[in-house]
């Protein structure tokens, strides 16, 4: 399994028009996981991924923040979405479609989780879910 194949799976699963969009998503999810996973689970995940993907699993802090939750996890992913739409004629800004960005981010996140699950043994998946924020763990299981 190489990096190109990982991106191709995510692109197909999410029906993304371009490889760049799939890659931005994969990178954001991996970086969010690096924020929240303890060392052993991070290493276990990295061992199953191509080297181009593992660079995004490097954590800068020695320990994950215990208060890091699903909202913060989503934040890393939502930043990659186009959450603004057409011109707003009332206040001169952009129409806010951010109300749906959470649902879209979760849908996209599941595409990455699905690709990751194909590379992890069931026991590794269970260990991962146990240390993810509760809601994120649920999305992982549903993927």
């Amino acid at each position: 399994m190489d990096y190109t194949q990982l991106l191709a799976e995510v692109q197909e699963d999410g029906s993304f028009p371009g490889r760049e969009e799939a890659e931005a998503l994969v990178v954001s999810v991996l970086m969010a996981m690096a924020e929240v996973l303890p060392g052993p689970q991070l290493d276990a995940l990295a061992s199953q991924l191509p080297p181009e993907a593992t660079v995004y699993l490097r954590r800068t802090r020695s320990q994950p923040d215990p208060l890091f939750d699903s909202h913060l996890f989503l934040g890393w992913v939502v930043s990659t979405l186009d959450a603004t739409g057409a011109r707003d004629k009332t206040v001169g800004g952009l129409d806010l479609t951010a109300a749906y960005s959470g649902e879209e981010a979760i849908r996209r996140m599941r595409c990455v989780f699905s690709a990751l699950k194909r590379r992890l043994e069931p026991a590794q998946q269970r260990e991962l879910v146990a240390v993810l924020p509760e809601e994120v763990g649920g999305w992982f299981l549903e993927a």
């Binding site: 208060l67 939750d69 909202h71 913060l72 934040g75 890393w76 959450a83 109300a99 959470g102």
Partner: peptide, 9 residues
Amino acid sequence: WCAGCGDFA
């Protein structure tokens, strides 16, 4: 707040 907003934290 928007999903993922830093205000949650």
